[in-house]
């Protein structure tokens, strides 16, 4: 019998933040790669889609601004989401995304399971790689934002720092962008959607819901905790409508195809990459 009960995993605001980040990341990747590979025919083609090198730069700067605004908004959102009356539980409880010792234990258990010498770890609400995905943005985005602003406003930057800092900023910006693109388009896409347990798509971040049976298998500690608290009934949700599923499948797979296209061409034309 196919399990049809679905429970809420992500709120609407969380999904909107993810959608905004996803959309801006894809635009930044495409315009950024177009600029990075502008010396190649492929880079010229990518920039052509955006109306040429200058326009690609303009879009890159504009969307970068939106990304920064979204990031700041997310921090404000977090400040509102924290339960200040029960700070300890809010920050270090099982529903928190802050890494803890349990993650290290899960990692070690997972490695043993991967090599067939142990049981699968009993994950709670967040796995250690999901936490890494989340906090990766917190180191990557500020680095890209600060170096990006320095490069957009070089004269202003040089009022406070020597000009050679722009050489370093350009290198950091590109290297971090390559790291982010490689991680998202290889690791995040695979773990999120293409591995057997998630294939054809992990719909949680789009619909906000997850099938109870699947959640019990992947995150047994979380479901057990919810059952003990009697909270399952409270977070039961309706499955998404078919038309909505079609929309996010088309959007999700378009994003994956775009990511894979950029990644493969990035590898093919990697000889054109100059980090400085």
């Amino acid at each position: 019998m196919i399990e049809t009960t679905v429970i809420k995993r992500f709120s609407l605001s969380e999904r909107l933040f993810h959608f905004l980040l996803m959309l801006s990341f894809l635009i930044q990747s495409a315009t950024g790669f177009g600029r990075l590979f502008i010396n190649s025919k492929w880079g010229e083609k990518v920039c052509y889609v955006f109306g040429g090198y200058e326009n690609a730069s303009l879009i890159h700067h504009f969307v970068g601004g939106i990304m920064i605004a979204g990031f700041l908004l997310h921090i404000i959102f977090l400040l509102f989401k924290i339960n200040w009356l029960d700070l300890r539980q809010s920050l270090f409880g099982p529903d928190s995304l802050i890494p803890n010792f349990q993650d290290i234990r899960h990692l070690s258990r997972q490695i043993r399971w991967l090599f067939g010498v142990g049981d699968h770890p009993r994950f709670d609400r967040w796995t250690y790689w999901e936490k890494f995905d989340y906090w990766g943005v917190f180191w990557g985005l500020p680095l890209l934002a600060i170096t990006g602003i320095m490069l957009i406003y070089p004269l202003w930057t040089c009022r406070f720092a020597p000009g050679w800092i722009l050489n370093v900023a350009a290198l950091l910006h590109r290297a971090e962008a390559i790291l982010a693109v490689s991680y998202i388009f290889i690791v995040h896409f695979f773990i999120g959607h293409l591995r057997p347990a998630s294939f054809p798509m992990n719909e949680a971040m789009f619909s906000g819901n997850v099938v109870l049976g699947q959640a019990t298998e992947e995150k047994p500690a979380w479901i057990e905790r919810l059952k003990m608290k009697g909270a399952i009934e409270k977070i039961k949700a309706q499955p998404p409508s078919q038309w909505f599923r079609v929309i996010y499948y088309v959007f999700g797979y378009s994003s994956i195809l775009l990511g894979v296209y950029l990644l493969i061409n990035g590898i093919i034309y990697s000889r054109y990459i100059r980090l400085h």
């Binding site: 997972q110 399971w113 991967l114 090599f115 067939g116 790689w129 890494f132 790291l179 490689s182 991680y183 290889i186 690791v187 695979f190 773990i191 293409l194 591995r195 057997p196 347990a197």
Partner: peptide, 17 residues
């Protein structure tokens, strides 16, 4: 980052398969 997560993802996929 990539030396850890790429083999990790591959092995997770393989074990799940």
């Amino acid at each position: 980052t990539l030396a850890f997560f790429i083999p990790h993802s591959f092995l997770v996929g393989l074990r799940e398969l």
